[in-house]
Design a protein around this nucleic acid. Structure first.
Lengths: 124, 124
DNA sequence: CCGTATCCGCCTTGATACTG
DNA sequence: CAGTATCAAGGCGGATACGG
């Protein structure tokens, strides 16, 4: 999302949430970490996201205090992520959003179809 | 948000939700409409958003079936928006997100400060 | 009062290549 | 295995101006 032209509205809870969690994969990352998938490689395989993008979002989550990053100083690099309490506090919300999405998948699918048709008609 | 390079994931409820409602003002619009603010002018005053942007998001909400648009055919233009059942089904989620944001406003605020400091140091 | 066409700025995501 | 630098593209939000 793009919204930096107008000052961030900390007065609105909705915007607080969006500012903090609007990355494309952030909620999924939190969810999967809570699910026990803690290592970068595994996360990446799970959601097939570009490494750079994933790291960026992960770093923001760390900076904002949603997850902790733990480096094991072994010979081969080993990293694990862990939810903080703040991150954990999001799980109920994530579940709710996820379920709403499951229940209304059809809406998105028909919206995509409409778009496709419209695109196809554009030249006319 | 920007995500059209990779096909939309209808398999993930989280993404269904995001695709449909990631506009900067959509959730707020739905909330305010549910709150009885139904006319474009009033909504615009309420959230101080650009007319074009608001209309775009409103139109998408209409297309996706979250709200209905009603035109009164009086001499002076008069429009009202109304939530559909689908739109209403989002209210509990919106409330939850809003409250989470209220409770964690401090997180965003300190995140903004960090950013400001970092920006200030950039030239060095 | 309402809507939309046009122009602009830039942030976000994504691909690739390289380093530790 | 993990992380980052660099490059590129595209969408979105915002401002303005005009038409109904």
């Amino acid at each position: 999302m793009y919204k930096k032209k107008i000052p961030i509205r900390t007065d609105c809870g909705l915007h607080v949430f969006k500012e903090l969690l609007d990355g494309k994969w952030k909620l999924m990352l939190i969810y999967y970490i809570s699910d026990g998938i803690k290592r970068p490689g595994a996360l990446q395989k799970k959601i097939s996201v570009d490494r750079r993008v994933m790291n960026k979002q992960l770093n923001e989550l760390v900076q904002h205090g949603f997850v902790d990053k733990i480096s094991f100083d072994s010979k081969i690099p080993k990293i694990e992520y862990m939810l903080t309490d703040l991150g954990t506090s999001l799980l109920p919300l994530i579940i709710s959003l996820e379920q709403w999405g499951e229940n209304n998948r059809a809406v998105l699918e028909s919206a995509i179809e409409d778009k496709t048709e419209r695109t196809a008609n554009t030249p006319a």
